[in-house]
Every structure is written in structure tokens, then in C-alpha cells.
Simulated assay, not measured.
Amino acid sequence: MGDLAAFVRGLPKAELHLHIEGSLEPEQMFEFARRNDVALPFASVEEVRAAYAFSNLQDFLDIYYQGAQVLLKEADFHDLATAYFRRIAADGARHAEIFFDPQTHTDRGVPFETVVRGLFSAMDEAEQTLGVTSKLILCFLRHLSEEAAFDTLEQAKPWLDRIAGVGLDSSEVGHPPAKFARVFVAARKLGLKVVAHAGEEGPPDYVYEALDLLEVDRIDHGNRSLEDDALTERLVRQGMTLTVCPLSNLKLCVVDDLRSHPLKRMLDLGLRATVNSDDPAYFGGYLAQNWIETAQALGLTRDELVVLAKNSFTGSFLAPDEIARHLAEIDAYVAAHP
């Protein structure tokens, strides 16, 4: 365990599937509630943690949106993201592509500008002080309408020089990617990268829709793609990155045991899988913890860990020269740790 953990933590890696609101630790929730004079339905940090027992995605989302109520000021978003960046820097991360849910905040009257200014300042600070680069991906909430997504895209236009892409998250079942086909066309025309949650709880058909109707650059989760051999072969052929979140899958009962997680099978099939933490404050582990627990449960080899690390950069939205630099750093690290 010690050797594995040390190797994993030192291994250069990127995180491609992280909801910044999902890094809100209970202690932060209480701190922000105090300074913003927000009443919480919980009496203590322990009571919050006890509530983090989910049987499905919707159970989690209910408390996730409740927790976000404490995020009101630019400093809240800055402090939230700064705490996250410090944690992943200690986990060996060199780069992160983070999701944010503007509608969760603008629907409460928090200006779009307040959210992004706080996040941008934390991103800039992380690069300067921690050496961790980052990109920001705006997610549309799929339980809301496509018209609401168009409104959010309009609000984002003054900030598109700092927003790398758009995504699709929240309640998957009953809200297929097809519902957002037009707004994704509009986003692509603006030069944005596009990603979408598909195949977490939703069927393989949702993955097909994400590929064919949204024309995504990568798939977030994608576990249920393995139920369809033709779809799996297509994802391999296209070199499509899957941003897999093992501890999230366990916590949300997508898998019943980490030892039955499909990550190793994905690698065996030639899929470009990556390991990510999703909503780590709620799901019991940041980036390295996902790597370590999954490696132990599945018996991942050193070579497979290196493949996962390289996938995390080749699947990123970094420029080719930046990707090459990170891949060279991985090779140097592996050579130095025989």
C-alpha cells in the first residue's frame, strides 16, 4: 500500500471530471454559511457527513444543491476552488479541467460575473503558486430547459476567452442529450469544446446521442457504453476519452463493489479511460484516493497506472506541445522510479 500510494501521488496526472461545487467540504459549508448569514438545515459537520449516504444520483443532487446555497460572494468561489487546487497539487496533479454550474447560482440571484471572477482568480493563483494549470467548463443543468441553457450561454459570452467548453450534468435519466442538441450546436459555433455526462445512469443510447447529436469531444462517465459492443468499438476507434469516476460510481451505487468496477476492462478493451473524483467532498476521496483505492481493488499494474496518467493529458484540452511536455514528465518520473 505504501509503495503504491507513494508512486501514485508522485505520478504526474490531470483531472478532467471535477465539479467545483462538489468539492464543498462540510467544514467549508459551515464557514461560508456563518460569514454569509445563511441558515443550514444541519446542526453540525457530523450531521452533514451522515447525510452523505446516497442510493442514487438524485439523492446526491438534492443535498448538493442544498449545500451550494452558502456560495454567494466572489470570495466564496475563490476560497472553494483554492482549497481544491491545494488538495490536487498534493495528489500529483499538474492540470485540472473543472466544471461549474452557473445556473445553480444565477437561479438564486448570484450574478454570473461573481461566480466566474472568483473561480478565475483562484485558477490564476493556483498556476502561479502551485504550478497547477486549469481550464473551466460551463455545465448546463439537464433537468432545466434548453431555453435556460441558451440564456446561460448568452451570459457566458463576455467571458469566453476564459471558458474552454460546455458540458451537461445533473439528473441524467429522463433528460437525454438530444434535449440540448441546438444549444450544443451554438456552443461549437462559438469555438467551445463540448463534453457531456452520458452512460452513468442513462443507457448506451444516451452515449450515442452525445456522440451523434452533441458531437462531444469527450464523454463524462460512459460506464454503460460497455453494454453495447458496437458502441465500445466505436469509442476505441475514435480515441474518445472517458472521464471515469470510480469512488463516485461506488457511492452512487452505479457499482456495488469497487472490485467489480469496469475501469480495468475499459483499459483491456483499448478505451481511453481516465480516473477522476467527480464530487470528492461528497464521495469520499480526491484524485489520488480514487487512483489508490481503484488500483488496489482492481489489481492495476504499474503500466496500467502510467497509461491512465498519459490518458489524462492526451484526453485534455491542452495544446499539443503542452501535452507532449507532460507526457515527457511522466516518462522521466517512471524512469526515476524503477
Rank of each mutant, 00 (worst) to 15 (best):
M1S: 14
G2N: 11
D3R: 15
D3M: 11
L4W: 02
L4H: 00
A5C: 01
A6G: 02
R9P: 10
L18C: 07
L18W: 05
I20T: 05
G22Q: 06
L24G: 03
F32I: 09
F32E: 09
A33W: 13
D37K: 08
V38K: 09
A39Q: 12
A43H: 09
A43L: 08
E46W: 04
E46I: 06
V48Y: 04
A53M: 00
F54T: 03
S55G: 12
L57R: 06
L61Q: 08
D62F: 07
I63N: 06
Q66T: 12
Q69I: 11
D79Q: 10
L80N: 10
G92D: 01
A93P: 06
R94G: 09
H95S: 05
H95V: 07
A96G: 02
D101G: 01
T104G: 14
D107M: 07
G109F: 12
F112M: 03
V116Y: 13
V116D: 10
V116R: 09
R117G: 06
R117N: 14
L119W: 06
L130W: 13
V132C: 09
V132A: 03
T133L: 07
T133I: 05
S134M: 01
K135C: 05
K135Y: 05
K135I: 04
H143P: 03
A148H: 14
A148S: 10
F150M: 10
F150Q: 15
L153A: 09
E154R: 14
A156P: 11
A156Y: 09
A156W: 15
P158T: 02
P158V: 02
P158L: 05
I163R: 04
I163H: 04
A164W: 08
V166P: 04
V166Q: 05
G174R: 01
H175S: 14
H175L: 01
P177M: 10
A178P: 00
F180K: 14
A181R: 15
R188G: 13
P204Y: 11
Y206N: 15
L213A: 06
L214S: 13
L214F: 15
E215N: 14
I219T: 15
D220V: 09
G222S: 02
R224G: 09
S225K: 07
L226K: 10
L226E: 07
E227I: 01
L231M: 06
E233W: 00
V236K: 14
R237L: 07
R237I: 02
T241C: 09
V244G: 08
C245D: 11
P246L: 06
S248F: 10
L252I: 00
C253F: 12
D256F: 03
L258K: 06
L258Y: 06
K264L: 12
R265L: 15
R265Y: 15
D268L: 03
L269K: 13
G270V: 07
R272G: 02
A273N: 03
N276V: 05
S277F: 01
D278E: 00
D279W: 04
D279F: 03
P280W: 00
F283L: 11
F283H: 11
G285C: 14
A295Y: 10
Q296P: 01
L298S: 15
L300A: 14
L305Y: 11
L305Q: 08
V307W: 13
S312I: 08
F313K: 05
F313E: 03
S316I: 12
L318D: 08
P320I: 10
E322H: 12
I323Y: 06
R325T: 13
R325Y: 13
H326G: 02
E329A: 13
D331W: 08
Y333K: 06
A336Y: 01
A336S: 08
H337W: 08
H337K: 07
H337A: 07
